[in-house]
Design a protein around this nucleic acid. Structure first.
Lengths: 215, 215
DNA sequence: TAGATTGTTAATCGATTAACAATC
DNA sequence: TAGATTGTTAATCGATTAACAATC
């Protein structure tokens, strides 16, 4: 097991996790690779092989214990522990992210929001008070926040990224259209609806055979 | 040329496009696959092969004409024509999307925004007036809008998706954490920051060798 | 025991890379 | 002409799938 994990395994793992959580909610205690394969449109053999990278979790003749597999995948990904998120920018986008309710199921939670606009500082967004951006480093370290979200105007994106990295954040989600650079050891995910749109356009405009697998 | 296009080519094409537009801004009239390769961290041979799927655009001994290649890639992707976007939901998220300035460079523009809250209807967000959701189908058809964005509470996501599809939209960007289903011929992109976070977590937590290629 | 389904090996498939003749 | 770089073929690499013995 382990050795080297093929490209794509980790991406699929989070897909399995999502479906497994749905199955669990539906009271499903056991699931076969065949079943999970039909839910995810992934070949059952591939699923078994993906899981085999990390150990043997199933029972021959039976399948996988839903709960057990959820637990295992979380362990593999690292989402078995809680992760704090710091949002920088308390405008429309920042407020929307604070209100996003897709994080909590996976142990993520927005635990601080920052702005440099004195009119916004101290105001409440959901349960959170907007903090001064000057206090970012202190608060990020205090709360051991590992994820930073850039939700400021594009021009300020790089400066915010630098500040986040300096404060010890390990993952940066950048919602501006500019590409930010960070030092090694920190991972940036530049969200980019345009990339997806372009990708999808191609498969719609009759330029392909139309049998594309979308992301 | 053409035949069947390998998985991943289209994704890379939009990356090339981005870098090419930067090069153009810097006054670069010609670019070699080697240069583009170093900017994108993609093997030059792969770039040439990717482009060869669609024709021969370069000059041996010289490279590619920046402008010409931009034009060609746009043609391939379908972003040589303008595309209208309808945003549904005039809350924080919808407002943020209207203000997003990454679309215009690629011919996308938000041309309508909708809500069902009478307090919001008629209000201006940026240059746009919020329209009643009842008029969505009419306006989408009138303006020949091909892209719909779901920026409403999760519970309403599926209903909005259905309405968008019924109105003739061909691409749906879903910003809620629920997975929406649409009929064949329509492509949904379920944006999912959680998927990216989980993916990235793995490569940070020392569980891998740390040499992952991020999306 | 018979049926089901895993874990894993071997076969297939497809995508990436290297190499090089063509040619600007 | 000499140097550079393409377009393309052949070689490599890695990932997916099929098949099946192990075993619940």
């Amino acid at each position: 097991m382990s050795g080297k994990v093929p490209e794509g395994v980790i991406e699929r793992l989070s897909l399995y996790l999502e479906r497994l959580m749905e199955l669990k909610q539906n009271g499903c205690e056991t699931v076969s690779s065949k079943r999970l394969g039909s839910l995810t449109e992934i070949n059952p053999a591939e699923i078994r092989r993906d899981l085999a990278c990390f150990g043997t979790f199933g029972k021959r003749g039976v399948g996988y214990n839903t709960d057990g597999l959820i637990f295992k995948i979380r362990q593999i990904l690292g989402s078995d522990e809680p992760h704090g998120i710091a949002v920088v920018g308390a405008g429309n986008l920042g407020s929307a992210i604070v209100g996003y309710d897709g994080f909590s199921l996976h142990g993520f939670s927005v635990s601080a929001i920052f702005d440099n606009d004195s009119k916004k500082i101290g105001k409440k967004i959901g349960e959170l008070k907007v903090s001064e951006i000057k206090n970012l480093e202190k608060i990020v370290k205090e709360k051991k926040i590992s994820i930073g979200v850039i939700a400021v105007p594009a021009l300020e994106a790089q400066a915010v990224a630098d500040l986040l990295v300096q404060s010890g954040v390990k993952i940066v989600l950048n919602y501006t259209p500019v590409t930010v650079k960070v030092s090694d050891g920190v991972k940036v995910y530049n969200t980019n609806p345009v990339k997806e749109l372009l990708y999808t356009l191609y498969y719609l405009s009759g330029r392909s055979d139309g049998n594309a697998r979308l992301l």
